[in-house]
């Protein structure tokens, strides 16, 4: 019934005009719903598997839905002294939040300068920044690792934060946004005696809410889900991040699908919560920036 009420007015107009459009409509909804099922089934399978008991997990043929759902696998992970889960969680949070804070600061400041100041070599510098966007991380990861070795930053959370403190894309994005801030606003502040940094903090930053949110969310998700770099940099257990813990746990219990799916659920959950909270900005952000 709900669906009928929610069909757009234009559609209702057309739906009244004949049977064929109605069939088409129904097909469209059927198709979209089927797509949703395909999208959701892996998540449900993950959840279902994580709720199976250790005996049910090896039953043949496998059960589709857990017959006696149990939180046994989650309990096993939480009680495993070798998996300091809250430590991994803290590490992931610390690294992601620090990177986000640094990127937002450096990108907005540099973006501001590029957008609103004239100086010699500006275009060249900006082109240079754009050029670095073309260098993929996988090409520089080997020397980057060697640099961290020389800075004694391997096996340290700083090793995850330091290389990510600036973002060429962030600067580009911020410049585009700040160019939209009227010059009169800035000139007025200058006449009122504001310092240049004061203009940045009191005039520019408050205008940047949505742009900062977008950049921040994507940077957060990117850093949170990052796998290859922490895999290379971190060795000590207590300094690992959640995605590393995931494969680490999995290869230890390769055949224990209940445990590895429970671990996957635990990693996916926080990011889903962030997603549902910030959904609007995420979708807006993509459409605005095409950022990934």
């Amino acid at each position: 019934m709900d669906t009928v009420q929610q069909i757009s007015p234009a559609l209702r107009r057309r739906a009244r005009s004949g049977l064929r459009p109605f069939v088409v409509r129904a097909l469209v909804y059927l198709l979209l719903t089927a797509g949703c099922v395909v999208t959701l089934v892996p998540f449900l399978w993950m959840l279902g598997t994580s709720l199976k008991s250790s005996t049910e997990i090896i039953r043949l043929p496998p059960t589709l839905i857990p017959e006696q759902p149990t939180l046994q696998s989650f309990r096993t992970i939480f009680e495993d002294p070798r998996v300091p889960l809250e430590r991994f969680f803290l590490n992931s949070t610390a690294v992601s939040v620090s990177v986000v804070a640094l990127v937002l600061f450096t990108s907005s400041l540099a973006g501001f300068v590029f957008a609103k100041y004239q100086f010699f070599g500006k275009d060249l510098l900006f082109t240079l920044i754009l050029a670095t966007m073309m260098i993929p991380f996988q090409v520089t990861m080997i020397p980057m690792y060697l640099i961290l070795v020389r800075l004694h930053l391997t096996d340290s959370l700083w090793g995850l934060v330091v290389p990510g403190a600036t973002s060429a894309f962030g600067i580009f994005l911020m410049k585009q946004f700040i160019e939209g801030i009227p010059a009169e606003l800035i000139d007025a502040a200058r006449i009122d005696g504001a310092s240049e940094f004061g203009i940045y903090t009191r005039i520019v930053l408050p205008q940047m809410g949505p742009a900062l949110a977008t950049l921040g969310i994507f940077q957060f998700m990117g850093t949170w889900n990052d796998y290859l770099w922490p895999l290379i940099v971190i060795t000590t257990t207590e300094r690992r991040t959640l995605p590393i813990m995931l494969t680490w746990y999995n290869s230890q219990h390769g055949a224990r699908h209940d445990l590895s799916m429970a671990a996957a659920t635990l990693v996916i959950l926080p990011i889903l919560i962030v997603y549902f909270l910030f959904q609007r900005w995420i979708v807006q952000g993509i459409t605005l920036t095409g950022f990934k």
Binding site: W45, N225, Y227, P243, L246
Partner: peptide
């Protein structure tokens, strides 16, 4: 819903699909 997989951890997604493709279970 369609965007859901995009935000989830790729490692977790890989593990889940690994279990989906498992020949026995």
């Amino acid at each position: 819903i369609y965007f859901l997989p995009t935000v989830t951890s790729l490692v977790a997604v890989s593990l889940v699909w690994g279990v989906i493709y498992n020949p026995t279970f």
